[in-house]
Amino acid sequence: MSGKRLPPTETAAGWLFCLPWIIGFLALFVWPFFASAWWSFCQYDMVNPPRWVGGSNYGRLASDLVTQQGFGQALTNTLYYSLLSVPLSVILGVLLAVLLSAPLRGQAIYRTLVFLPSVIPVVAASILWLWLLNPESGMVNYLLSWVGVPPQNWLNQARPAISMETMEMIRQGGMVSSFKLFGSKDALVLMSLWGVGNFVVIYLAAISDIPRSLYEAAEMDGASPGRKLLHVTLPMLSPIIFFNLVMGLIRSVQTFTSIYILSEGTGAPAGSLKLISLELFLSAFSDLEMGYASAMALLLFIGLALATLLLFRTSRYWVHYRMVA
């Protein structure tokens, strides 16, 4: 940074350069935010002007929550999906990055092939996974049959269903030829894990930034590879893991295109693919309940903000920021 500073005309220039963004900020973020908040207390169908109805939209959301209909079901679905896909993608991402940073011949090719799925457009990937997860002739069930897992219904089944007979058979230690362990949301998790390459790239960059000297010091102390992973790699990666947890959470809650295509826009089977994003879209644009949808959006925003805050609060216990720059 040079010491001498410039005339105040710079202030005008600063505002002018930022002007397009400022317009966008006001028109696409600030106004929409407050409009949403306002409409969440209204009945609004976009044809007639919004009509104040007090907290009744929130009342409906609360009763949905109790009955597990609509919003309630969508919230449970979203929690199921996020709580499964986000941690799994972090774990898988780190493991793959560690594996792909080992000095192996052909490393660049392996990295490319693991990353490649994440450049596949979601629309194409969803079409592909519809086929891969086909219960009769999909590749996933075929591979699972190699390790003795009976055919799963995947996208045709709302939730895992293990019948009483199956339970009884498992208890007696008998061969189980049919149990349905995986449903539609597990299919969605599987599909999201296929695209983990993005995260892998970020971890790989972070791993290559870890000073060699740390590993050398650990080796001097006779640390095994497992201990090096646990005491050098993971702590050094923790800021990035934290960043990916936060971004992964935000991204998973916003998942929309894949569930829309996998369920042809309905959230089927039995509403099991209705994550909040789809429920909100359908309430707004097929039921024209803008007020109700806005209330849902506001709750989602608050929930996401709280979850992010919570992650930040826990971060001080496990995220190690490097002291030396």
């Binding site: 202030t11 989602l300 925003f301």
Partner: peptide, 28 residues
Amino acid sequence: VNWSGRRWMFGLVIATMLLPWHITMIPR
């Protein structure tokens, strides 16, 4: 560009990243 507003304005830019699209979708 050297002006006093740029720090907090950059903060606002970053803040928009954390806003889920759901909440702006209908008004937009």
